[in-house]
Design a protein around this nucleic acid. Structure first.
Lengths: 91, 91
DNA sequence: TAGATAGTTAGACAATTATCTAAATAAGGA
DNA sequence: TCCTTATTTAGATAATTGTCTAACTATCTA
């Protein structure tokens, strides 16, 4: 897991909105693209960035590619974040 | 709190290293700059980015400016991250 | 095998970012 | 007031990023 790739991926609002969509349920690339006023290639690029960071997984099902969240990477990042805010109780 | 600013700030390895230093103790700008092979203006710029995201606080003490972590923003981000990885137990 | 649908890849362009050097500001001490 | 130390601000430049259109690949169905 590369923290740089993960945080870069999370630093774009469109990509965070994609993540919020995937919290509800797994979705196809087209399904995701429909939710935004942006071209399919742009959304495809964002999905690639998310996948490259390990935040989402993809699986082809016939003509469709289904995207889902990879929650383990989120847990890793939370663990790092807690090494910061967890210091609070030591004060 | 702007999630975009926070994640952008966290997406640079130098800035994360600065955060790791500040976990140990509060430090002056010059103290921080000494730990990196990078010019002081560059570190100053990174500190500004961190402060702008709300991740660090600064206070002038004479000639020095002392930087410290603002843990509350980390907690806010952790809360959002848990809305993702927290879904895990629902499966 | 030809056409339609789903999705990605390639290439271009404008905007943003990380870094540097040089110059400016702020505070303390002689 | 002048000099030194601490730090930031300004301006330049190379690299990265987000978006678009056009073209390509993959799969299904008739």
């Amino acid at each position: 897991m590369s923290a740089t790739l993960v945080f870069k991926a999370l630093s774009d609002p469109t990509r965070r909105a994609i993540i919020d969509l995937l919290k509800e349920r797994d979705r196809t690339a087209g399904d995701i693209a429909e939710q935004f006023q942006m071209t399919k290639p742009s959304i495809s690029h964002h999905l690639h960035t998310l996948q490259n960071a390990g935040l989402v997984l993809s699986e082809r099902k016939g003509q469709h590619i289904i995207y889902s969240l990879n929650t383990t990477v989120f847990q890793d990042i939370v663990a790092w974040m807690l090494t910061v805010s967890g210091k609070e109780k030591e004060k």
